[in-house]
Write a protein that binds this DNA or RNA. Structure first.
Length: 463
RNA sequence: GGCGCCAUAGCCAAGUGGUAAGGCGAAGGUCUGCAAAACCUUUACUCCCCAGUUCGAAUCUGGGUGGCGCCUCCA
């Protein structure tokens, strides 16, 4: 039984989907006004893994992740660059794909763009006005928080407390400081769309309500995003959606913790962020994934060069084990009985992986099982092992790391010039010319490659 | 002011009342021409502190201390 920590109830709950065997999942996507940073990558990677795991567990998952392609930041940047908001969106959606693909984040089933869902948003807003939960004021429409009595139930706050702490200067047009815009009246020079209230553009929160309901229905299973979205974004989404439909909107709210720099939140507004684009100039994309998976998704996670180095070293251990298994497969003996009980041990490890992941997607716990599998491979299998045993370990390793999106790289192809040096080194070794051999190894190192001598001969891997 | 989260070895980290997973690093050893990888051994008698509950607490309760987040665009 999969258990999920629900931010709304603040406890771990058994996961029971609305429709047996099917899961509807929505994850707040990026505002496409810039490259995304390494902190943004955390939910993309984690929820990608959770989706893979749900599929691995046999669920048919419909995964939706939006692109917010109109808002203040989009408008500002488009203006600065002298392009339209649409052009800016097109550009950074394309850049999103490059980084997401590099990180092994699979495309969602649907990637709706806010600007392409105006009719749905307008219908929602009109419905809220009709029900008396929203009001129009000078061409803008606001959600009336006092008219949704359950407002605050997601973030566990009540209107009075929020009121007292509100730092926002009261907008003259709002009846209540906590009311929020569903529709913003057109301003000169800003993109706008026709609506019953005149030209304007949607508020941020309504986008996600409209797009999630459009593809997942009025009620669905999982809504995910960063912890900072819990309030007000998700609170508002919930209010709008349930206000409109009169029924529960989302069954499980999931929120990932932050990726920190020096123990402080990384964010664009603080300027202490690294874009994924920049990180990937220096590190393997899978190292980033490994780092993310090494901690529980709700815990804060510090980002540093040292952490990246640790992640890289850990991952290398898994790659080494996999490559060795591949090599063993060649020499393994078909039909040899599994005297060591490999099959049972592998299944035991697989079960531990499952129980880790079932436990609110505890990737750190599951990772322990993956390393146990590597250990099993290193200690219990050798050239004399049965082919079936080797195959079992190898395929299970592929299966589990596949769920995590790791070990996606094949064996590395060696560039010709590197191979040429390696060949000369092999020759020197054959002649027992150790001085020459070591000199050539040093040369390979300068080229970024590590030469290792194994019983099967010289092996090369990227340093 | 309101609402939350976190504290486990040199670093990262799991642990959801029954006697501290795993990874990185470090030290010694096996193997190797030397390395690397792998393997073996060592690296938390103890989980921020103080009380309490319990036969039993890293885990539960209360009180401290320290750090972080949301309440404003934010993953």
């Amino acid at each position: 039984m999969i258990q999920i920590y629900n931010s709304q109830t603040r406890r771990r709950e058994d996961f029971v989907p609305l429709r047996a065997g099917k899961v509807g999942m929505y994850c707040c996507g990026p505002t496409v006004y810039d490259f995304f940073h390494i902190g943004n990558a955390r939910p993309f990677i984690m929820f990608d893994v959770f989706r893979r795991y749900l599929q691995y567990r046999g669920y048919e998952v419909t995964f939706v992740q939006n692109f917010t392609d109109v808002d203040d930041k989009m408008i500002d940047r488009a203006r600065r660059e002298g392009v339209t908001v649409r052009e800016l969106g097109d550009r950074f959606i394309a850049e999103y794909w490059k980084d997401a693909n590099a990180l092994g984040v699979k495309p969602a089933d649907v990637h709706p763009r806010a600007t392409e869902h105006m009719p749905q948003m307008i219908a929602l807003i009109q419905g809220l006005i009709d029900k008396g939960m929203a009001y129009e004021q000078a061409g803008s429409v606001y959600f009336s928080t006092p008219d949704f009595p359950e407002y605050g139930k997601l973030s566990g706050q009540n209107l009075e407390d929020l009121d007292a702490g509100a730092r926002v200067s009261v907008d003259e047009e709002k009846r209540n400081p906590l009311d929020f815009a569903l529709w913003k009246a057109e301003k000169p020079g800003e993109p706008s769309w026709d609506s019953p209230w005149g030209r304007g553009r949607p508020g941020w929160h309504i986008e996600c309500s409209a797009m999630s309901m459009a593809y997942l229905g009025e009620a669905f299973d999982i809504h995910a995003g960063g912890q900072d979205l819990l309030f007000p974004h998700h609170e508002n989404e919930l209010a709008q959606s349930e206000g409109f439909t009169g029924r529960p909107f989302v069954n499980y709210w999931m929120h990932n913790g932050f990726l920190n720099i020096d123990n402080t939140k990384m964010s664009k507004s603080l300027g202490n962020f690294f874009t994924v684009r920049d990180i990937l100039k220096e590190y393997e994309p899978e190292d980033v994934r490994m780092l993310m998976l090494s901690a529980h998704y709700r815990s804060p996670l510090n980002f540093s060069r040292d952490m990246m180095a640790q992640a890289h070293a850990s991952l290398t251990r898994l790659y080494t084990a996999r490559d060795r298994l591949n090599a063993l497969l060649v020499s393994a003996k078909p039909g040899k009985a599994d005297g060591a009980g490999i099959t049972e041990k592998v299944e035991e490890i697989r079960q531990r992986f499952l129980s880790g992941m079932d436990n609110d997607f505890n990737t750190a716990e599951a990772m322990g099982a993956v390393f146990d599998l590597a250990y099993l491979a290193n200690t219990e299998l050798d050239e004399g092992s049965g082919k079936e045993a080797v195959q079992t370990v190898l395929s299970t390793l592929a299966e589990l790391t596949g769920v995590l999106g790791l070990l996606a790289r094949g064996e590395e192809s060696v560039p010709e010039d590197v191979q040429a040096v390696a060949d000369r080194r092999a020759e020197a070794r054959k002649n027992r010319d150790w001085a020459q051999s070591d000199a050539l190894r040093a040369e390979l190192a300068r080229m970024g490659w590590l030469a290792e001598d194994t019983p099967q001969g010289q092996k090369l891997r990227r340093a």
